[in-house]
């Protein structure tokens, strides 16, 4: 039987969840025995080369590129997992959500203390090459169907390891009290 294939991505996140994945330490050698990695920042494969069994998504959707990547993952992964608070509820990037996008951009490019007086032509970048900002940061499950959620900021290495091994072996996962934390 061929190994299950895993893909991972960071959208509007800080890479902390991926760091936590690496925190499984020497168990990463066991993981490599168990699974094969496809599109992921860990192996730097940029595009899907085959259909994957499990997709891990870190970060929410703050721009059009995030939405594109997320939809691509949904299309290419049988099981999609939101891991970390940003993927689940927007996290730190979603602090901008109560503020209209126009005000955010004006603060960042026109009125903020570090730019005021230095952007004389009053330009807010809008080149079509730049991904379009969304009106707010969306949790992943509000864009595509997500099958499982691993909370935490970041989710502990133990939680990620337990979830992945449970999925791969088909065993039920044990959810001890201390393993689920939102911080």
């Amino acid at each position: 039987m061929s190994k299950p294939v895993i893909a991972t991505a960071t959208l509007a996140g800080c890479f902390g969840c991926h760091m936590s994945l690496l925190d499984i330490d020497e168990k990463i050698l066991d993981l490599i025995e168990l699974v094969e990695f496809n599109k992921s920042p860990i192996d730097d494969i940029k595009n899907f080369t085959k259909k994957c069994d499990i997709g891990l998504i870190e970060g929410g959707c703050c721009n059009s590129e995030n939405v594109h990547v997320l939809k691509d993952f949904r299309k290419n992964c049988n099981i999609l997992i939101s891991f970390g608070e940003c993927a689940i509820m927007g996290g730190l990037p979603a602090y901008r959500n109560p503020i209209p996008i126009k005000e955010c951009l004006e603060e960042a490019y026109l009125n903020g203390p570090s730019v005021k007086g230095h952007n004389e032509s009053g330009i807010i970048p809008n080149d079509e090459e730049i991904p379009m900002m969304l009106d707010k940061v969306y949790p992943c499950h509000e864009i595509v169907k997500i099958d499982y959620f691993l909370p935490g900021c970041p989710p502990s290495a133990e939680l990620i390891w337990n979830a992945l091994t449970a999925l791969i072996t088909g065993n039920e996962m044990e959810l001890s009290y201390e393993i689920i934390k939102f911080d």
């Binding site: 689940i88 979603a94 959620f149």
Partner: peptide
Amino acid sequence: MVPRFTFQFPK
């Protein structure tokens, strides 16, 4: 694990 409702993000 995740709320079943849509996030409101109120001001």
